[in-house]
């Protein structure tokens, strides 16, 4: 539904629905922390930004349709390759329930968060921190790219605006009242 929908906003909404379904799958696998983090990050933050962009874009349907046939042969070629790969992988026998086994059930005292935290902060602490630093670098790179040419931005200096005093903006002029005789 997400791919077939013509309307970009509707497509984004279906993507959100997909995230919710994935989250509920995780819930069924007793991974409530992962499920809720998925909703929090993807639905709560990433997709909101998507919607933000979609609203800004002017999506003209006719131009989109005009380009459709031009890229059709290439698109079909790529999709056939992808589908073939998926079929080959799925038929390799690695995804059988017998291979992985039925996930074992835990009792009520089992806490998904503690389990994840133990793994993440003991065994995998270096990969975890490396990933964090990588993301940080990406953020800094994005910010520096945006702020490269300062001259074009019409930035307001807010602390200057807040600290403004009456004497900076206002000039008091004393005008001598004209006498009645002069005004005539």
């Amino acid at each position: 539904m997400m791919i077939t929908s013509r309307n970009t906003a509707k497509a984004a909404l279906f993507l959100i629905l997909t995230f919710f379904s994935a989250a509920s799958l995780w819930l069924l696998l007793e991974a409530e922390f992962l499920a809720i983090t998925l909703i929090l990050i993807y639905v709560g933050a990433v997709m909101v930004l998507f919607m933000f962009v979609i609203k800004m874009l002017d999506t003209d349907q006719s131009t989109l349709r005009a380009q459709f046939t031009r890229y059709l042969p290439l698109g079909i070629f790529v999709s056939i390759i992808v589908i073939a790969q998926i079929v080959l992988v799925l038929n390799a026998g690695q995804f059988d329930i017998a291979m992985t086994g039925i996930p074992e059930k835990h009792d009520a005292s089992y806490s998904n968060i503690t389990a994840i935290a133990e793994q993440l902060y003991t065994l995998y602490v270096y990969p975890f921190e490396l990933a964090a630093i990588l993301l940080l670098i990406a953020i800094i790179a994005a910010i520096t790219l945006v702020h490269r040419n300062e001259s074009r931005s019409k930035k307001q200096n807010i602390s200057e605006q807040i600290n403004v005093q009456a004497k900076d903006r206002m000039r008091i002029v004393s005008i001598k009242p004209k006498s009645a005789k002069e005004s005539k």
Partner: peptide, 12 residues
């Protein structure tokens, strides 16, 4: 068990 996260997620 993750009620604080749930609050954040649903709130968003």
């Amino acid at each position: 068990d993750v009620s604080l996260l749930y609050v954040m997620a649903i709130g968003s």
